[in-house]
Write a protein that binds this DNA or RNA. Structure first.
Length: 267
DNA sequence: GTCGCAGTGTACCGTATACC
DNA sequence: GGTATACGGTACACTGCGAC
């Protein structure tokens, strides 16, 4: 009988700074699996030590696990203590913490494809964190759920702000994040672009959209749909396979892509 | 039914660090 | 110095799925 999803009483566990960084990372991404946390904070995806520390955080209710099939990795979201911790750290208020925290998957049906989409975005968050850490940049990330609460008028998959300069007062570079696997219909695509346009005209602040997809063919379809848009130069289209360097490498194609197949960097 | 595989849990070891 | 715990790593047991 597996006790994988049964919290166990733990005494004398001292939480480390890294344990609490894991809690914060789960808050920012909403869902993270143990491999992603291992990669971000323990140097390797298959760290047994990461598994052990995550097990303690689970037992202490800082993190909870989604229901997962036996051969699928554990997927963590914030537990009660985790939500209290991020509020105490000033990352958000209590209501936001409760609304942004993930759900178990027992009461609320979350299709496998939707969870896969969420974890792909979590992977982008991890990649962004690692790239920023490597270069001494600072990163601010908002996940899908956090953006929903802001009622922007459109529904991006994520938002990030990066300060690349040495001074914290340097102007941040900001972008929305989109990830498309199944291509939307023309009408859906037009609606999405119109919502972005509406948002930018209300705020008078056009922002880059880093638009990931899964194949060159889909990237071409996206570029074609964007080509005649008023704000076509705001959209950068790239492949999810290149996400490990998406903040720095010239992986992006944009409105002038019909004239060049060479990518451009974002930051 | 057997086997291989993937994933988790845990024991164990040696080392480092903090605290008394 | 002794003790407790963290950390990084290895190893093994267990579970359930899929292929044969």
């Amino acid at each position: 009988m597996s006790h994988r999803f049964e919290p166990q009483a733990r005494q004398r566990i001292r939480l480390t700074a890294r344990d609490l960084q894991a809690v914060e990372a789960v808050y920012h991404a909403r869902y993270l699996n143990n491999r992603q946390i291992g990669r971000l904070l323990f140097g390797r995806e298959d760290s047994s030590h990461a598994r052990q520390r995550l097990r303690y955080l689970f037992d202490l209710d800082y993190l909870r696990k989604r229901v997962a099939a036996p051969n699928e990795p554990d997927i963590y979201y914030l537990g009660l203590k985790g939500r209290r911790y991020v509020v105490a750290q000033g990352l958000c208020d209590r209501e936001t913490a409760d609304k942004v925290a993930g759900v178990s998957g027992e009461q609320v049906a979350t299709p496998t494809l939707m969870m896969s989409h969420e974890l792909t975005l979590s992977g982008l968050y991890i990649s962004a964190r690692l790239q920023c850490r490597e270069r001494g940049w600072s990163l601010h990330w908002k996940n899908t759920r956090r953006l929903e609460l802001e009622s922007l008028g459109m529904q991006p998959d994520g938002w990030l702000s990066v300060v690349t300069g040495p001074s914290p007062d340097a102007p941040p570079r900001q972008a929305f994040v989109e990830f498309t696997d199944a291509m939307p219909s023309k009408a859906e695509m037009a609606g999405k672009l119109a919502r972005y346009q509406g948002h930018w005209e209300r705020t008078r602040l056009p922002t880059a959209v880093l638009w990931f997809t899964t194949s060159p063919r889909k990237a071409n379809l996206l570029l074609e749909a964007i080509r005649n848009d008023t704000y076509r130069d705001c959209y950068l289209v790239g492949l999810i396979d290149d996400n490990a360097s998406f903040l720095t490498a010239p992986i992006w194609r944009w409105g002038d892509a019909e004239r060049s197949n060479e990518g451009v960097p974002w930051a």
